[in-house]
Simulated scan of single mutants.
Amino acid sequence: MATRGKKHLDEITPQLGQLCSPCFRRVTLNCKRQFHVPIAAIGLREGRHVRLYFSREGHQRLLVDDAVCGLPLAVPAEQIFIEDLHQVPEELQPHLAIALGVRSYIGVPIFLRQHLVGSLSLADNHPRSFSTREIQRLKDLAHWTGHLMELHL
């Protein structure tokens, strides 16, 4: 598939997700083991939604505004790190994450040909701090995931 820029990437992200989902499962399973977290996910932007891929079969589609994994897509940055969601003002808390018992979260962006297309995220049920080395490793995995997706274009 040849791409013609960001608009085209937005249109093909769902197909890329399907093509790459077996690899996404391996990446997220590796993240769960390596970082000792109960939740690892790759989230790909689909318009105003984010489709989450986990270490198990299947995926889930949520509005970007409703998913903590949508934060790196809504507020593009180096990374989004929240050591304890209970310390975040209530009106800013991602209610779905709180309902699922998530206490800490870190997400890093995934770029495909310099376009932000998704995030690689970790969540824990306890307040947690991630070291600089762990954050860099997560960024490296996100960078690798972007290259993996590029192989399918």
Score class of each variant (00 low, 15 high):
40 A>S: 15
22 P>V: 13
35 F>A: 07
49 H>K: 04
48 R>G: 08
7 K>M: 09
58 G>K: 07
4 R>C: 07
39 I>S: 04
1 M>N: 07
37 V>W: 08
63 L>R: 10
45 R>H: 02
62 L>N: 06
64 V>H: 09
33 R>V: 12
40 A>P: 06
37 V>Y: 10
55 S>C: 13
16 L>D: 00
19 L>A: 11
57 E>P: 05
53 Y>P: 02
16 L>F: 08
18 Q>K: 08
21 S>V: 02
9 L>T: 01
21 S>A: 14
42 I>L: 15
51 R>P: 02
46 E>I: 11
31 C>K: 03
4 R>D: 09
37 V>Q: 01
32 K>Q: 12
72 P>A: 14
54 F>L: 15
2 A>P: 04
56 R>D: 15
48 R>P: 05
35 F>I: 06
50 V>I: 13
12 I>C: 06
35 F>Q: 04
59 H>F: 15
49 H>G: 01
5 G>N: 04
54 F>K: 04
70 G>A: 11
4 R>N: 08
26 R>M: 06
36 H>C: 06
2 A>Q: 07
37 V>E: 03
64 V>P: 00
4 R>Q: 08
4 R>E: 09
56 R>P: 00
17 G>D: 00
63 L>Y: 13
53 Y>L: 02
25 R>I: 03
65 D>E: 13
33 R>K: 10
3 T>G: 05
72 P>H: 05
28 T>Y: 11
51 R>L: 10
19 L>F: 11
44 L>M: 12
18 Q>N: 06
34 Q>Y: 14
53 Y>S: 00
6 K>T: 07
12 I>G: 02
57 E>M: 13
52 L>M: 14
33 R>Y: 12
42 I>R: 00
28 T>C: 07
64 V>R: 11
30 N>Q: 04
20 C>Q: 04
23 C>S: 11
37 V>D: 03
55 S>G: 14
59 H>T: 11
35 F>E: 06
56 R>K: 13
54 F>G: 06
9 L>C: 06
65 D>Y: 11
18 Q>Y: 10
62 L>S: 04
21 S>E: 09
39 I>M: 10
13 T>I: 13
28 T>G: 02
54 F>Y: 15
19 L>V: 05
50 V>Y: 09
25 R>H: 07
61 R>C: 13
72 P>V: 08
39 I>K: 03
34 Q>C: 14
65 D>M: 07
55 S>W: 13
7 K>Q: 08
46 E>P: 00
42 I>G: 05
18 Q>C: 02
43 G>I: 05
50 V>L: 05
9 L>N: 02
55 S>K: 03
50 V>Q: 02
3 T>E: 04
62 L>H: 15
2 A>W: 09
64 V>D: 07
70 G>E: 03
60 Q>A: 15
1 M>T: 04
64 V>S: 11
60 Q>V: 15
59 H>C: 15
38 P>E: 10
61 R>I: 15
8 H>C: 05
66 D>E: 13
50 V>A: 07
32 K>M: 13
8 H>Y: 14
29 L>W: 05
6 K>S: 11
63 L>M: 14
54 F>C: 02
15 Q>A: 13
30 N>T: 07
65 D>F: 14
11 E>P: 01
44 L>E: 04
4 R>I: 13
3 T>Y: 10
44 L>W: 08
